[in-house]
Amino acid sequence: PPSSSSTVVPTSLPPYFIKGSIIQLADGELKRVEDLKTEDFIQSAEISSDLKIDSSTVERIEGSISASNFAVVQFSVGEHRAQVSVEVLVEYPFFVFGQGWSSCCPDRTTQLLELPCTKLSVGDVCISLTLKNLR
């Protein structure tokens, strides 16, 4: 079987990435999207009954052949280093461990969402989610 899979993240920018959006953590605390820290995601996942945080290392970033404002980001996910590719708008933000929001085109992210953002690079470790093993 193929060792990689492809996931398409929503192709329009969701409203919750706009600066000032109110995000509810798993313990009920409310924070603005631009104020979220790595610990907020980790602690929320610890409380969650079915979700766990996985480390997704950026292995490759390339332009999409379908449209110039899309990028294909290839991740190595979790301890099994499963290869996952996602096609996203270049301004789509990912949360990098210990760093914060990052996108393929931070200038566009800041312009469209006013979300402070750095450049997503190969080697960055992003926060992603998988289902907990329910045994």
């Binding site: 079987p1 990689s4 990435f17 995000i23 509810q24 979220l36 945080i53 996952v84 992603s128």
Partner: peptide, 25 residues
């Protein structure tokens, strides 16, 4: 009386891409 519009609140996990790797075992 006009009720004030509530501000939308989004769950934390909607901000994180859900990457489900293929399982080989």
């Amino acid at each position: 009386n006009v009720e004030p519009r509530s501000v939308p609140v989004f769950p934390w996990h909607s901000l994180v891409p859900f990457l489900a790797p293929t399982q080989s075992d």
